[in-house]
């Protein structure tokens, strides 16, 4: 809306922008909203810049792959955090292996089989609530249920992360399946397919872009988690590539441990690990975006 300049049209009608207090209030409000955005940008920028600056100097091929995590006193040039990298990849990977198929099946149940049944609505609602359960609870839970009986292991850590991921994958799968039009299901039924066939051969492929994207985001979230792990993997400093027995380590737990150390070496290792973790999460997030862009047929 362009404000007519201070000339009044000859008829005497005043079409100028409402002046005075109303306009100022509006401007303040708009500025306020932009400030809100800036306020959020500041810590984000601050943290990213710090992590990149301090982490980049620590990272090297040796850093990422050397299988000896040195004692805290030693500077970052000694050894590396290989065990932690492998730990993160293995533990998160196995958790994904458990949580993603179960989560997709759960979402399938709610949308395809649940209908209006009370049970389906309850499960849907509780899955939603479960996404808000703090991750530390998952760690404590697996501790009481598994670690007390079978000891610490990377596997226990995977279970804890899987508990975290499960409701996220269920919810995102459900949301994606909802978007698949019913006419596709009808066409498939009309050709004589059973319900399982319809779901597996038509509905899931139609929603696959969104489902994969949601799963990737869940993995990104799990990779960065610390609390579920500190109660389940009993952090060590040595490489343990056996997921199923013995304590293990991960990037997130390493950062947690080293953050409170007074030694620069330990702190540098923490920064380097932080940068690695952020990079992993970032790559997964980008991958999720790409999958959505290229493979999602039915989006909101």
């Amino acid at each position: 809306m362009m404000a007519v300049a201070s000339e009044q049209p000859a008829s005497g009608v005043d079409l100028r922008e409402p002046g005075g207090w109303r306009r100022t209030k509006n401007q303040i409000a708009t500025v306020g909203m932009w400030i809100a955005f800036a306020v959020m940008l500041v810590p984000l920028g601050f943290v990213l810049v710090t992590v990149i600056a301090k982490g980049a100097s620590a990272i090297s091929w040796q850093f990422l792959t050397n299988s000896t995590i040195p004692v805290n006193v030693l500077p970052v040039t000694y050894g590396g955090v290989g065990p932690a990298v492998i730990g993160t990849l293995e533990i998160t990977g196995f958790a994904a292996l458990i949580a993603i198929p179960l989560g997709v099946l759960g979402g399938v149940y709610i949308n395809e089989y649940g209908g209006n049944h009370v049970l389906a609505r309850v499960i849907n609602f509780m899955a939603d609530v479960m996404t808000g359960v703090p991750s530390i609870i998952m760690g404590l839970f697996i501790f009481t249920i598994w670690v007390l009986h079978f000891g610490y292991s990377g596997l226990a850590g995977s279970f804890a992360l899987a508990c975290l991921m499960l409701p996220i994958v269920i919810r995102s799968t459900y949301e994606m399946l909802r978007l698949v039009p019913d006419s596709l299901r009808e066409a498939s039924y009309a050709l004589g397919a059973t319900k399982a066939r319809v779901t597996v051969t038509v509905v899931l492929p139609a929603a696959i872009g969104g489902i994969v994207s949601g799963a990737l985001l869940a993995v990104a979230r799990a990779a960065g988690e610390t609390a579920p792990l500190i109660f389940t993997i009993f952090v060590t400093q040595t490489l343990n590539s056996n997921l199923f027995s013995g304590a293990n380590t991960a990037l997130s737990t390493l950062i947690f441990q080293n953050a409170t150390q007074p030694y620069t070496g330990a702190q540098d290792r923490a920064w380097g690990s932080a940068l690695t973790l952020i990079a992993i999460a970032f790559i997964l997030m980008i991958a999720a975006r790409l999958v959505t862009a290229r493979f999602s047929r039915y989006s909101q």
């Binding site: 006419s183 596709l184 009808e186 498939s188 009309a190 004589g192 139609a206």
Partner: peptide
């Protein structure tokens, strides 16, 4: 044995 064609074309993706 008894197939159906619908009002709005609904090819699979």
């Amino acid at each position: 044995r008894i197939g159906m064609v619908f009002q709005k074309p609904n090819p699979f993706p």
